[in-house]
Amino acid sequence: MRRPVESPPQYTSFKPAEHLNGDGIAASIGSVGDAYGNALMESTTGLYKTGLIKPQRPWRTLSEVELACAEWADWYNCRRLHGEIGRVPPAEYEATYYLTATKPQVGTEI
């Protein structure tokens, strides 16, 4: 028996894409049926679950979970040492990048 073809998720429909395009925003989604768009999110979610959610359960209150999630996101985005970028925190790497990328160039034109 053949399975019915599933329609793409709502975020890949034409209306949201037209809205983004009208505002000059490029959608950061892959094509329908390709897993590459989800790979980073799935990897990050896996780290989040195994590093925070599962080890600390049972959670007692929603506030406990919210605070832990905010702290984890701060650590992940700002303070963890990232091996692919020279074992520096992502926030530091980004700040250094923009500092060096936006330095005015000295020219000889008058």
Results as ranks from 00 to 15, higher is better:
M1F: 14
E6A: 14
P8I: 10
Q10V: 09
T12Q: 12
S13W: 15
F14C: 02
K15A: 14
K15R: 14
P16W: 06
A17P: 00
A17D: 12
G22F: 06
D23V: 06
D23S: 10
G24H: 11
A27W: 02
S28K: 07
I29M: 09
G30V: 11
G33T: 07
G33C: 10
D34C: 12
Y36A: 13
E42Y: 02
E42M: 03
S43M: 08
T45I: 10
G46E: 04
G46C: 05
L47Q: 15
L47K: 15
K49P: 00
T50K: 04
T50N: 10
I53W: 01
P55F: 11
W59S: 07
W59V: 05
R60W: 07
R60T: 08
L62G: 06
L62Q: 14
E64W: 02
V65D: 00
E66D: 12
E66N: 10
E71R: 15
W72F: 15
W75T: 01
Y76N: 00
N77M: 05
C78V: 08
R80Q: 11
L81K: 13
L81Q: 11
G83C: 05
G86E: 09
V88N: 00
P89M: 07
E94F: 05
A95T: 14
A95F: 09
Y98I: 00
T100W: 06
A101T: 06
P104L: 09
Q105P: 01
Q105L: 14
V106Y: 03
